[in-house]
């Protein structure tokens, strides 16, 4: 079968100790037997490793941070599109999703396809909205509340018991055992990711995760459950193993079918000693461990691109249980002239 040639732009090429999903998504696309992809990297920082990984990324362009505003961002995409003729764009950072969702129509008019959650889907699964989400869809969630100051937490302290989890709106989470630690982590996270900060009830148990892809009509195209077997001090998986867990799969199907979720997602769950599942977060994109799903038999990046291109996709019905990943670090040697090109011209 002849492969379909597509130009695919994506971000999240920071393949570092807290990695973005970009490089694993590219690996999935490179494994595809149906898509012959030209990969365009969208880069925020000169030291993201992705642009220098030439066997995976064909060409890279610096892009402005989403916080700089939608217009400068779109202007840059317009330029890149003029040169590269992008078919599909896959944003891989939570923090840029809002910009892309807002611009979905404009991108489509330019001829660039995306496959993202709707704004409503994106908003209602926010950490600060989780209790309502749990109530609406009948899912166990820990009690949580958004705060904009430590004083806010003091006023609602009777609703919580220590320890509590202090979470950023996009990233970062710390367990705080007293008020001093709440204040410490509040300031630390707020300085990096802004407000609000979410205070969440601490649920004791084992963290398990599901990667999934919804077609936007209520169907689950694929889903693979995993347990982190090695966790870094940043709480990121450095190793993981696929599980056989019908309860986690049922929960995923239920959420995707009820919300008609469109695009990739990661469910973060805690399984208590009583075997109850609590949903602690929904990440609205494919996670950095996506290549484990590919290796287990579900090439979700390929399926996502096909959905974006309106190519029919048959839902995956199985995956390998007990498939493991072990992350590793690798010193990529970079010539100064390459770094110079990306730093000065914004292209490599």
């Amino acid at each position: 079968m002849e492969k379909i040639k597509l130009t695919i732009a994506l971000s999240g090429l920071n393949n570092i100790d807290s990695p973005g999903p970009g490089i694993p998504v590219v690996r999935g696309l490179r494994d595809s037997k149906e898509i012959d992809a030209r990969i365009i990297g969208l880069v925020y920082d000169n030291l993201e490793p992705g642009p220098y990984m030439h066997d995976l990324v064909d060409k890279s362009y610096k892009v402005p941070y989403p916080s700089d505003g939608v217009e400068p961002f779109l202007e840059r995409i317009r330029y890149i599109h003029q040169v590269e003729k992008i078919d599909v764009l896959i944003p891989n950072f939570d923090s840029e999703l809002f910009t892309f969702m807002k611009s979905e129509k404009i991108l489509r008019e330019m001829g660039i396809r995306t496959f993202l959650p709707t704004l409503q889907q994106f908003e209602e699964r926010h950490k600060s909205n989780l209790p309502e989400y749990g109530k609406k869809y009948g899912v166990n969630v820990p009690y949580s509340a958004p705060i904009t100051s430590v004083e806010d937490f003091r006023n609602m302290q009777d609703k919580f018991e220590f320890p509590v989890v202090v979470k950023g709106k996009f990233y970062d989470a710390y367990i705080a055992y007293d008020m001093d630690q709440v204040a410490l982590y509040f300031n630390k996270i707020a300085a990096k990711w802004g407000l609000p900060i979410v205070i969440q009830e601490f649920v004791r148990g084992t963290e398990v995760n599901v990667i999934a892809l919804g077609d936007g009509k209520g169907n689950t195209i694929g889903a693979v459950p995993m347990r982190k077997t090695y966790i870094t001090d940043k709480g990121k998986a450095w190793g993981g193993i696929t599980l056989e867990d019908p309860t986690m799969m049922d929960l995923t199907y239920k959420i995707i079918s009820q919300t008609k979720w469109r695009g990739g997602m990661e469910l973060e769950l805690i399984r208590t000693t009583k075997n109850e599942l609590y949903m602690i977060e929904i990440n609205p994109r494919l996670p950095a461990w996506v290549y484990l799903a590919v290796a287990a038999g579900q090439n979700l990046p390929e399926a996502l691109v096909k959905l974006a291109m309106d190519i029919p996709v048959t839902p995956f019905t199985k995956y390998d249980i007990g498939k493991m990943f072990i992350r590793y670090s690798f010193d990529l040697i970079v010539e100064l002239n390459e770094f110079e090109k990306l730093s000065t011209k914004g292209e490599l």
Binding site: T229, I241, L243, E244, D245, G322
Partner: peptide, 17 residues
């Protein structure tokens, strides 16, 4: 039933990993 036990004595619980 779902516990895998190999001839070498390696035991794998697919539910917990």
């Amino acid at each position: 039933k779902n516990i895998a036990i190999s001839d070498s004595g390696f035991v794998f619980d697919p539910g917990s990993g």
